[in-house]
Structures are given as structure tokens and as C-alpha cells.
């Protein structure tokens, strides 16, 4: 029990994030259905966000919002790093945009081919 309690929180988030990256990559590489590939991409994306957030964590830190709960004088010792959080905010939005474009490509291909299987689309394969 004490071994589990000794594991830092950010390590759990880090390992889950790395695991999600692997699962997503596996999905993207092995699945032949385009929607599943896009789901794989989203999983990898989320995994990377989790890794980035966990790197910014400081032991015992709280959210980087400096108000009554975290006085300005002791801010530097009590908050987590705001930079990775800001980076993840950007990354989430970019990931959303990329996913939307991929899904609309999938819709177009489905309309033209009546299938979502990538194996059917061979003419652009080199």
C-alpha cells in the first residue's frame, strides 16, 4: 500500500499518457477503417497532452491562478508551471482542427466510394 502511495501523481499521468500514445499509434497503423484511424490519432493526441501536463507538475502545486487562495508573495512556490498548460491549450485546439479536417476527408471519401476502408483507395498508393 505504501509503495502505491509513494508513486507521484504526475508519474501516473505520464505513464497513462505514454500508454495512450502507444495505443493510438497501434490503432493508426493496424486499423483499416478510416474512422478508427482518426480515433487512433485522437488517442495519441490526448496522450501527448497528458505527458505535457504531467511534465509541468510541481510537487504539491496548485492551479496557476493567483487570487485569495494563492497569495502573490508565495505564488512561485505553490503553483504548477503555467507554460506547459498554455502549450497544451494551444495543442488541443490544433488537434481539434486537424481532426475536423480528417473527418471531412473521410466523409468525402465515403461519398465517393461508399466505403471507409482504406484498402479500397488504392490509386493514390505509391
Amino acid at each position: 500500500m505504501s509503495i502505491i502511495a509513494d508513486i507521484p501523481v504526475s508519474l501516473i499521468v505520464l505513464c497513462s499518457g505514454l500508454g495512450l500514445i502507444l495505443i493510438g499509434l497501434w490503432g493508426m497503423l493496424t486499423q483499416r477503417n478510416m474512422i478508427r484511424m482518426i480515433v487512433g490519432f485522437s488517442l495519441t493526441d490526448t496522450g501527448i497532452h497528458m505527458v505535457m501536463v504531467s511534465i509541468g507538475y510541481v510537487t504539491g502545486g496548485t492551479a496557476p491562478i493567483i487570487n485569495d487562495a494563492v497569495p502573490m508573495a508565495e505564488a512561485a512556490s505553490r503553483i504548477v508551471d503555467p507554460v506547459p498548460s498554455a502549450l497544451v491549450l494551444t495543442a488541443i485546439v490544433i488537434g481539434l482542427g486537424v481532426t475536423a479536417v480528417m473527418l471531412s476527408f473521410a466523409v468525402r471519401i465515403y461519398k465517393a466510394r461508399k466505403t471507409l476502408m482504406i484498402d479500397e483507395c488504392t490509386e493514390s498508393k505509391w
Binding site: 510541481v58 502573490m72 504548477v80 503555467p82
Partner: peptide
Amino acid sequence: YTENTQLSKLGQYYAEKGPQ
């Protein structure tokens, strides 16, 4: 991996100077 015990230099700058 070892958890950070203090902020990075940039984070520290933002924490100290940002609000002011």
C-alpha cells in the same frame, strides 16, 4: 522521471512578475 520540486526559471518569472 522525477517530479519537479520547483518551477522552471520561466515559470518562476511568470509567477512573480506576471500578476504585477
